[in-house]
Design a protein around this nucleic acid. Structure first.
Lengths: 105, 105
DNA sequence: ACGAATCGTAAGCAATGACTTACGGTAAGT
DNA sequence: ACTTACCGTAAGTCATTGCTTACGATTCGT
């Protein structure tokens, strides 16, 4: 149910840049927006989307707000793709097998 | 480089429905569109996007065109997420460790 | 050979979404 | 206290995109 929001959130290139900036650890909004070619409010809006999707956690620290990647949110998406890959590979193997049998005849 | 197109393609709910229909094996366009609440050309356009993203393979079979999920395309996305999850978890563990040390003091 | 079936593409339209500027609210520094 | 720094939200604009209808091309059936 929640992996759908996650994949929608990660579909945006700008949001993937934000995620990349958080790979090494939590950062406040200003540090995330710094060096990016969009305004800080725009970054805030993206952070909101990512948080709602369960991909980020927020911990207010005095004046600032620290955003960090939520491993659980990523994991939801991983499970979906793992499941999809299993089915896809099984279908692929079955199709290959059927075709081999058809050629043999 | 190609996982970006893949995640963009999978972001659309309708395209995920199409993918789901192909989980059990290849299907022609008509069979995919059948029972869906959008027109067949719309399905064709989605199939185009999914194919361009490397998530589907097409094998013309006489009159029809069979679409099937490409496990390799799914795998690209899996690798990206696996990598992301590793980094996220490492950052998470590091942050937790730092905080524990801060409390201990 | 002719009509029906299967499918892709083009053009046009409506809805979604990403961005900007402007503003308000809270915490930190002096 | 007063100013500065940090951040979220609202309103409005513009580009993107998903849909429909219309059309053309290829293949199957008779």
């Amino acid at each position: 149910m929640t992996y759908q929001n996650a994949i929608t959130a990660l579909a945006d290139p700008t949001r993937r840049v934000i995620i990349d900036r958080l790979r090494s650890g939590p950062l406040p909004v200003g540090a995330i927006a710094d060096g990016m070619d969009i305004s800080r409010p725009a970054v805030s809006q993206h952070l909101r989307v990512l948080s709602d999707a369960g991909l980020l956690t927020v911990t207010p620290s005095g004046n600032r707000r620290l955003y960090a990647i939520a491993p659980d949110g990523i994991d939801e998406l991983r499970k979906y793709l793992d499941n999809l890959w299993d089915d896809a590979f099984a279908a692929f193997a079955r199709a290959a097998h059927d075709q081999a049998k058809r050629i043999k005849k």
